[in-house]
Design a protein around this nucleic acid. Structure first.
Lengths: 286, 286
DNA sequence: GGTGAGCTGTGCAAAAATGCACAGATGAAT
DNA sequence: ATTCATCTGTGCATTTTTGCACAGCTCACC
């Protein structure tokens, strides 16, 4: 095998299905990709792609080669992370991902302090809903609200998440139905509504906590939200119902990759996040 | 991760322990190796090697990175083989390994015929005692005398190996002890000698079948050898004793890698070897 | 202490890989 | 049918990588 980097090119073309997109992903010119693929095919005396009008398509035979290339990719990411794990300096780049409401209404102001403490660490923030792919190094540290952290990540629960029911201060006691707001993936009326509200009826689905809060504020209905949202935002137009909800299994989790546990800058940020949350525990559990 | 080929350089330096040897293995100039390692270290901001007077030594921390690199290497070899497996042309290079006596006294003359049939296939013969590392592609096909073929290789037993006891035609019936010749790893007098010879005593250890045969021919003692050796060589100075030895579990095995089963030139050679041995079965079992 | 073998670092020239710009090709939309 | 957008192939200039030759260094051996 002459050049292991060819696997990277092969993989990307196989994945993208055409040279141009692969070249974009690889950060090189498309002609480079074409030439490397051609060289690989020539050297091994094999045709790997069929050139359809739509682009490069894997030969049937080459499919299992592609699967192998995926494994190689995973190991190479691992390699890169392990190298990073050897870095003991408090400088460089750390990629961080978290739900945007946590950042915008709670962490943003505190992260400034971290920047002061470690001026040489460059943060790379990725606010996102889903869990970014930590094994592809889209993120080094993730702050997540979840009840089931993925196994391949090391992490710990920083605190529990308490929930409450919220409504607009101007909310009128309903006559027939109580309008409620739920998450997009909830088709049924959730149990918290059935148990605590008279004749609940879903009026609005949202896929974002801030959107839910704003909807409550605007009087669109009653919603179950983690208490931290209101504790951070404190809109006078929103009030919590006295209802006590049962404890949730969800919590705030701090996740990162095992390979990065030795990296100084990653450790520093993890510790900072942990202590910041501990100092403001009341926001999440009050 | 910028360049997966850097792993290859890192691995070789880690394995060899110095730049020059690594460069030799990689087939490049030593300064290239030095520069690539330096670039990798700089890019990742990590020190991977300590420069002792004796050469480049892995940092303690970097040791598990090295182990990971070994895994990556294995997968890359696999990748290369899989590519080769897609090659359906009866041309190119096939690396072949076998014990040298089999080649020199039996197969050499027949392989000429294969060359005529497939003039575009270049054979790359590696006569060797041990099993060459088929997963590193030192060989694509191995012909081996064994009783336990390694599991990760596909293969089949082409024929059984029958054994006989041989002595020099001029051999004198011993007075007190019968001198015998054994393999180097046999410290004890082997059972075949105890059971069939009066007062056997080891006089010579050898690690090679032809050497054993020549020793017998020269009258150095009695030896147990596969019958094919004498059947091929037919030295008038060597004769087989009438003693019948029990059947051996050993046989002639034809081994190759599963990934290469579709490769036309590998298949062609395997079939040729199989049919050649079948035609001359008597040499091995008579 | 001298000598030689083996290893590493560096400047410069040669070679190889890459980017760029443009041409041709294909298919979708008007 | 025409236009437009998208993708791939190619010649040439540029950049990057590599090899080579030489110098300096360490260690072992005499």
């Amino acid at each position: 095998m002459n050049n292991w980097d060819d696997v990277r090119f092969f993989l990307e073309v196989a994945r993208q299905g055409n040279l141009t997109a692969a070249a974009r992903e690889l950060g090189v010119n498309h002609s480079t990709v074409a030439r490397r693929i051609k060289a690989l095919e020539d050297r091994q005396g094999v045709r790997l792609f069929e050139q359809l009008s739509s682009g490069y398509k894997l030969t049937d035979d080459a499919y299992e080669v592609y699967e192998l290339a995926l494994d190689i990719e995973a190991l190479n990411y691992r390699f890169s992370r392990k190298l990073q794990g050897l870095d003991s300096r408090l400088q460089g780049r750390v990629a961080l991902t978290m739900p945007h409401d946590i950042f915008e209404f709670f962490l943003a102001e505190h992260l400034a302090q971290f920047q002061e403490q470690h001026p040489e660490i460059v943060l790379d923030l990725l606010v996102a809903k889903g869990l970014k792919n930590l094994s592809h190094r889209e993120a080094d540290i993730a702050l997540r609200l979840t009840d089931t952290p993925p196994e391949y990540l090391v992490g710990k629960q920083l605190c529990e998440l308490h929930y409450g029911l919220y409504q607009s201060s101007k909310f009128q006691n309903p006559e027939s139905h109580t309008p409620i707001i739920t998450w997009s993936d909830q088709a049924q009326v959730p149990s918290w509504a059935v148990e605590h509200l008279p004749a609940p009826s879903i009026r609005l689905h949202v896929n974002d906590l801030l959107a839910m809060y704003k909807a409550v504020e605007a009087g669109l209905g009653i919603a179950r939200m983690p208490v931290y949202m209101h504790n951070c935002y404190r809109s006078p137009k929103v009030q919590q119902l006295p209802t006590k909800l049962p404890k949730s299994k969800w919590g705030v989790w701090l996740l990162s990759h095992a390979d990065l546990r030795k990296t100084a800058r990653v450790q520093a940020l993890k510790q900072f996040l942990q202590s910041t949350l501990e100092q403001h525990l009341a926001l999440f559990t009050a």
